[in-house]
């Protein structure tokens, strides 16, 4: 749907205020620092990207999945659903919405397993623990928490138009990559896609030493917003300079708030429940 962004649920419900994000994240910030939180999100954005590429999805679908992922945690603690489960769920839902053919449950799980093993074993030495039924259950929660807002506008389409309009097609490659990088920040939750596209293009102009001053002067756009976006992307690049994900991520994942599959109660009663479950399993085995 290439409809009207201004009347979309994206514009009306899902352009958040930075203070909203900070408020919602207080629960998690009690456990991990703001920087750790950002690093975790960089990691899972990468995971979604790699997973999507292995499933041969278009960047548009991957970007939508990433925005779904961020939308869920903009309203919920990391503790509610394990991000390792939510990530493939977002991929599944985005691929259905963007109509690029259904990914079979089996293929999704197998790809998760092989991607975790081949690309992310530095973070997850164990096997990918989830099955199709976990993802399908999770999908309902994702849809519900996004208030059924599934159509996401991405910066790619406006970017292509702007690059054509400015008449410097060689800007596209770099600005496209900058947009991809912006998925590792909160930008997609805070700014409309056309502003992100403009910021990426302006950054590309600077790097490639192209003169876009006149073009940018002529378009009526809130330059403060463009500067804010640029600052956040530059902050991401600064972080990359000193951050070694391969070294740090296991420690961060260990610290991350985690779901508890049992009700919170004293350890003794939790144990007894485990015991009951054990016998149940056995008796079922006997019956069969």
């Amino acid at each position: 749907m290439a409809g009207n962004f201004w009347q979309s649920s994206h514009c009306q419900q899902w352009l958040l205020d930075p203070s909203d994000l900070v408020r919602e994240r207080q629960v998690d910030f009690a456990v991990v620092t703001e920087e750790d939180y950002q690093k975790l999100f960089i990691f899972f954005s990468n995971f979604i990207q790699v997973l999507g590429e292995h499933l041969k999805l278009k960047q548009q679908v991957i970007a939508t999945a990433t925005v779904y992922f961020k939308r869920f945690y903009a309203r919920n603690s990391l503790k509610c659903i394990d991000p390792l489960l939510l990530a493939p769920t977002c991929i599944l839902l985005a691929s259905k919405v963007e109509e690029f053919g259904v990914i079979s449950n089996n293929r999704l799980i197998t790809t998760c397993q092989s991607v975790v093993k081949s690309k992310f074993s530095y973070a997850y030495p164990q096997e990918f623990p989830y099955r199709a039924n976990h993802i399908l259950e999770c999908e309902f929660y994702l849809l519900e928490n996004m208030d059924c807002c599934l159509v996401v506008y991405q910066p790619y389409r406006p970017l292509v138009q702007f690059v054509q309009d400015i008449g410097q097609e060689d800007l596209l490659g770099l600005s496209w990559k900058i947009v991809n990088d912006s998925l590792r920040t909160d930008i997609s939750l805070l700014y409309p896609p056309y502003q992100i596209a403009l910021a990426a293009m302006q950054m590309a102009c600077v790097v490639l030493q192209k003169d876009g001053k006149n073009w940018f002067a002529e378009i009526a756009v809130d330059t403060d917003k463009i500067q804010e976006i640029t600052r956040q992307i530059l902050a991401l690049y600064d972080l990359y300079k000193t951050y070694d994900e391969k070294k740090e991520i296991q420690g961060l994942l260990a610290k991350m708030p985690k779901p508890k599959s049992q009700p919170s109660r004293p350890p003794s009663s939790a144990q007894s429940q485990d015991g009951i479950q054990g016998t149940n399993d056995q008796s079922m085995g006997v019956n069969n």
């Binding site: 749907m1 009347q7 979309s8 109509e99 259904v102 399908l136 849809l143 519900e144 059924c148």
Partner: peptide, 29 residues
Amino acid sequence: GLSMSACREIALLRELKHPNVINLQRVFL
């Protein structure tokens, strides 16, 4: 569950607003 057509229906109806197009009031899961 969410078939592709269910997803598309929810996704698009959520965005559409016109007097001559059916109006989705709410989704129950």
